[in-house]
Amino acid sequence: MQDIDKHIIAGLKDKNKRDLAFHQLVSTYQERLYWHIRKIVLNHDDTDDVLQNTFLKVWKSIDNFREESSLFTWLYRIATNESITFINSKKKKSFMQMNEVSEFLMDNLESDPYFEGDEIQLKLQKAILTLPEKQRIVFNMKYYDDLKYDDMAQILDTSVGALKASYHHAAKKIEHYLKSTD
């Protein structure tokens, strides 16, 4: 565990220092969590909502944090769950089918004024959106964030073997999409 994490955890446990430690936690992890959530929900405004909800949940459940996992994996796990909950709630509200979710997310991406990628990047995002939800999350975590499989296994509560297989399949599907849409 990093020294900064140890310092933050010690502060969070002390009720007199909790506010300050939480502020430190937000400053340390806000960007990493933002990009992790953004790649799942794609739109900036939605990401902002999910990120705030993530930190609110962290604030409320500080007492439940056991040091069995690292602070970083605990935060990533909450952020991932909040992102999935957000997509599911959108799905329920608009009575979407599974295949319509990727269409909704694609619209979300195309209408986002803060998407700065070129055509190739947009095509790659479209390819990633063809993946099933869990596979998409695994691909993003490995491809963009270069997370270790061990950490990913803790965050997603899956085995390393399953994650490797998932990433392999995801890469193959994306490759197929890129080739077939040339």
Binding site: Y34, G117, L122, E175, L178
Partner: peptide, 16 residues
């Protein structure tokens, strides 16, 4: 596994 994907530059296409 993915030669086409490997050619794409790995960059963050999103902004804030």
């Amino acid at each position: 596994i993915a030669p086409e994907l490997s050619k794409i530059k790995k960059e963050n296409a999103f902004g804030t």
